[in-house]
């Protein structure tokens, strides 16, 4: 039992990283094909990460600058442990959905601290945008979380997954929530049109402006985790999780694939427009869904 737990604790982050990385690989290729390009080799992200890690020289603006990516990665690893996947629920009993919401923040905090320490206004603006955007998508996000929780009468993510067994997905029972959840997860991933944070043409990749070498490598790894977290959470909440890894992966891939299509066609929001957007349509739809749950 304990051995099991330790084994899965070790294996889960690796799995999450692998999934995230695979999505990054696919994304490069798919977006190239949509743009009628050939695209880079499929394992290009691995080259990138390894290259960054193996840079001969790294620079640092201070301890927190270096710790930032580490804290971000640690936060992501921790978060991954709290998300049940494919019937494996590791720490889910120690922290429920609400705890998970705030554990997810640890990673952002590390990122924000490191970026702040880089003493670059572009980084600060990026973080300012990131946090503002976070406040933006948090409103619909908490509303759908509340409606899902009230629908299943539990905040335990594993129980929520269990309740969706045999095809009783939340997607079918609460379709409006699921749609909003998709928009929120998409916004949280920072793809177009919500890539305001890193917008290379405006703020020179925002928080990452001063990062290079292994620091940047860590951030890319973290991004892989990030993709996994957002989509796995969505799958757990709305698509009924899965009983085996393959099925889980397929569901995640389906979600990610739709996201990729959106990513390719949208331009970029202004930050205040993004917040206004999140506070308008997704919030209204989420509230409608919430009221439906309450009335039921």
């Amino acid at each position: 039992m304990v051995i099991d737990k330790i084994f899965f604790t070790i294996i889960t982050p690796i799995f999450a990283f692998a999934v995230g990385l695979s999505f990054m690989m696919i994304k490069l290729k798919v977006s190239a094909r949509i743009e009628r390009r050939y695209g880079p080799p499929i394992i290009q992200p691995i080259y990138n990460i390894l290259k960054l890690l193996l840079k001969e020289e790294n620079i640092s603006h201070g301890v927190i600058f270096s710790l930032g990516p580490v804290i971000a990665l640690a936060g992501s690893i921790l978060t991954v442990l709290f998300i049940p996947y494919a019937g494996i629920k590791l720490f889910t009993g120690s922290g429920d959905l609400i705890a998970l919401m705030y554990i997810m923040v640890i990673g952002s905090l590390g990122m924000a601290l490191g970026a702040g320490e880089s003493a670059n206004p572009n980084a600060s603006i990026g973080i300012s945008r990131a946090l503002t955007l976070m406040l933006g998508y948090d409103l619909p996000f908490v509303i759908i979380i509340i409606s899902v929780v009230l629908y299943y009468h539990t905040t335990n993510l594993a129980d929520i997954v269990a309740a969706q067994a045999h095809g009783h997905w939340t997607l079918w029972s609460l379709p409006l929530s699921a749609i909003v959840g998709f928009v929120v997860a998409y916004g949280a991933l920072g793809e177009h049109p919500f890539d305001i944070i890193t917008a290379p043409h405006e703020v020179a990749t925002g928080p990452m402006v001063e990062y290079g070498g292994k620091h940047l490598g860590f951030l890319v790894i973290n991004h892989a985790f990030h993709i996994y977290i957002e989509i796995a959470l969505f799958v757990d909440l709305f698509l009924g999780g899965a009983t085996n890894v393959l099925w889980f992966y397929v569901k995640m891939f389906a979600v990610f694939f739709i996201m990729m299509l959106f990513d390719e066609v949208y331009p970029r929001f202004k930050i205040d427009d993004a917040v206004r957007f999140f506070w308008k349509w997704p919030t209204i739809v989420a509230l409608i869904s919430l009221i439906i749950v309450l009335v039921k």
């Binding site: 390009r37 695209g39 080799p41 020179a204 990749t205 990452m208 990062y211 940047l216």
Partner: peptide, 14 residues
């Protein structure tokens, strides 16, 4: 990008 080339914006990353 076929050769793994990509444009980047800051000198630290390039």
């Amino acid at each position: 990008s076929r050769f793994g080339l990509a444009p980047f914006v800051t000198p630290r990353q390039s």
